[in-house]
């Protein structure tokens, strides 16, 4: 029995990079398809960046750029350890998994600002500051969405959140929180309408001065972050691995890919949001809406006890 347990734990550890890498690659391929660069676009781009020579700016703070670029991929990976469920439980089954996911996703703020600042160049700097403003706008409703999930489940542990959805998925039980989560998933991965920090109006923003392997790691981190943000919706709102016929891990992957495809598609189909307008809508509409959703969920949770 201990041997079987050990083998299962090893399987989870080995499966994690495969699942995370696969989902990130899926995000890159889907993105490439919507831009018309074909299925092999991401691989061609990766090969090109690996061979590209590094471009340097004058008086750049190389340490901070490297820290920022690596922090993006690291934050996405660490966020994934708590929410990517492989079979029964995630790799890091923390008692406060929901808070851990939140903390790692906030580390992206630091990653983007450092990358933007370190280049000592105008457009990356604008992009870095844009993301901090975006963070202040999306983070409060996003946190309330996660709190609502935790209140509904009565636990901060991700497998218990999944277990609490046996009767009714949280996407149905708390639709406002689900909608806010999907919007903030776009915001945290600076994707589509919330891609201002990398906007074409600032010549690519944060990544404008990145080149070669630096840009490759940055892009990998961004796709991994989008993939993790999409995959987190499955245990939080879509009942985890619940579903007829297929085993739990297969259902988890199918749902994660569906959310990912939705995010990529929606990102291509919507116009960019101006951050001052988004902040206003976020604080004046989304926060009160989330507080009402939290009140309803808490009332139901207390009544059901």
């Amino acid at each position: 029995m201990p041997l079987r347990k050990g083998a299962a734990a090893l399987g989870v550890i080995l499966a994690f990079p495969v699942v995370l890498g696969g989902l990130a690659l899926a995000a890159a391929v889907l993105d490439s398809r919507t831009r018309g660069t074909g299925w092999a676009g991401p691989l061609r781009e990766a090969a090109r960046l690996l061979g590209q020579r590094r471009r340097r700016t004058v008086a750049a703070d190389g340490l901070l750029v490297t820290a920022g670029v690596c922090a993006l991929l690291t934050a996405a990976t660490l966020a994934g350890t708590a929410v990517l469920p492989l079979g029964e439980r995630p790799l890091a089954d923390l008692a406060v998994g929901v808070v851990w996911f939140n903390a790692m996703e906030v580390a992206v703020w630091a990653a983007l600002w450092l990358t933007g600042w370190g280049a000592n160049s105008f457009y990356p700097l604008v992009g870095g500051y844009r993301f901090l403003a975006q963070g202040l706008a999306y983070e409060l409703p996003h946190m309330f969405a996660l709190i609502t999930v935790a209140v509904g489940a009565g636990s901060l542990r991700v497998p218990e959140v999944v277990a609490a959805q046996r009767g009714l998925w949280f996407a149905v039980a708390m639709p406002v929180a689900f909608a806010v989560y999907l919007l903030s998933a776009l915001a945290m991965a600076f994707w589509g309408p919330l891609g201002g920090p990398l906007g074409v109006d600032v010549a690519g923003g944060v990544r404008a001065e990145l080149s070669g392997p630096d840009l490759l790691i940055f892009q990998a981190g961004r796709y991994a972050l989008l993939a993790v943000a999409a995959a987190a919706a499955v245990p939080f709102f879509l009942g985890g691995g619940a579903g007829p016929g297929l085993p739990a891990w297969a259902w988890t992957l199918v749902k994660a890919l569906a959310v990912l495809a939705l995010l990529v598609w929606a990102g291509r189909r919507t116009a960019g949001l101006r951050m001052d307008r988004f902040t206003e809508a976020s604080w004046l509409v989304l926060i009160p809406a989330m507080l009402l959703q939290l009140l309803v969920t808490a009332t139901v949770a207390v009544a059901a006890r």
């Binding site: 923390l94 008692a95 406060v96 808070v99 851990w100 939140n102 903390a103 906030v106 580390a107 703020w109 630091a110 600002w113 600042w117 500051y129 901090l132 963070g135 202040l136 983070e139 901060l156």
Partner: peptide, 21 residues
Amino acid sequence: LQYLGVLVILMMIMEMCVMAV
């Protein structure tokens, strides 16, 4: 103290980003 530890990490990252500005 998982909750406190993760909360310190979460709050300090946000705080230092805003403080840098």
